[in-house]
Amino acid sequence: MTVETLLLVAAALFGIGVYGALSQQSFVMIMMGLELMLSGAILATGTLWAMAAGGTPKGQLLAIVLVTVMAVEMAIGFALVVNVYRIRKADITEKLKTLRG
């Protein structure tokens, strides 16, 4: 378990997340891709915190901020999806060509 291998795992998670966020049509699947990217970011933060920053608590604070970002993304994302579905009956990106009301 070295910095390199851990960062490679994080990069793999991030890469899969990028693929998902770009390729999926369903809104919820896109959000899954975003979550995976954030998971890679959290893993990388945790790695660098433990192995390169000597475990100062500030590094973990950054990870906690990332977890907050994840929660915010989920909540606002789902609120938007609910609203879009209610008004436009759209559940995939192709049905949502414009962003106007």
Binding site: V3, L6, L8, A11, A12, G15, S23, G40
Partner: peptide
């Protein structure tokens, strides 16, 4: 899925880029 090939390319590219950093 849409833009499947481009998405795969982007995913692989970001993995390679970030992995290189690591």
């Amino acid at each position: 899925v849409h833009q499947h090939r481009a998405a795969i390319a982007a995913g692989v590219l970001s993995f390679l880029g970030l992995g290189a950093v690591g």
